[in-house]
């Protein structure tokens, strides 16, 4: 499936729409370059889950993981860009809670060898100044 969005707001709206349909335990691996809309997309996921304070949804690059609670599901927002080893993703204390929440991992390609269950890969491509093409690939379930 491919979706073209023409602005950051459209990217957020698409993510919000998707978030309403996702089951607990889903892990989204977000794959795309700097500025391709990954964090913007997660802001939309949070909106779709009705996280109360959307202002707190920001880049997890520095702290590696942000957790947003108070919505339909807890949202675990990670950034894998600086993992020395993909297994570090399991050291953030999120795995045990993952099945009850929604997880979104930026630079998800870095952990795709170790995070395999309930995974959906989303690719982000910059196709214009504000235009993005978001593709989704369903991975092995169960």
């Amino acid at each position: 499936m491919k979706r073209v969005t023409k602005s950051a707001d459209e990217t957020r709206a698409f993510a919000a729409e998707l978030a309403r349909t996702l089951e607990p335990g889903t892990i989204l691996l977000l794959v795309g370059d700097f500025g391709s809309g990954k964090t913007t997309f997660v802001q939309g996921l949070a909106a779709g889950l009705e996280v109360p304070d959307l202002r707190v949804v920001c880049s997890p690059t520095f702290v590696m993981m942000n957790v947003y609670k108070g919505g339909r599901l807890p949202l675990y927002h990670m950034d894998a860009t600086r993992f020395a080893d993909p297994r570090e993703v399991f050291e953030l204390g999120w795995e045990a809670e993952a099945e009850r929440g929604l997880t979104a991992i930026e630079w998800g390609e870095k952990v795709s060898t170790v995070v395999r269950k309930h995974v959906r890969i989303l690719t982000f491509e910059v196709t214009g100044e504000t235009m993005r093409e978001i593709g989704t690939v369903e991975e092995g379930r169960g």
């Binding site: 370059d33 500025g35 964090t39 910059v126 196709t127 214009g128 100044e129 235009m131």
Partner: peptide, 21 residues
């Protein structure tokens, strides 16, 4: 600041951005 960062990406890699475009 993500908008400014994205603008830099676009200005720098501008003409190479997007397949077949």
């Amino acid at each position: 600041f993500s908008g400014v960062k994205t603008a830099v990406l676009y200005k720098w890699k501008g003409q190479n951005v997007g397949k077949g475009r």
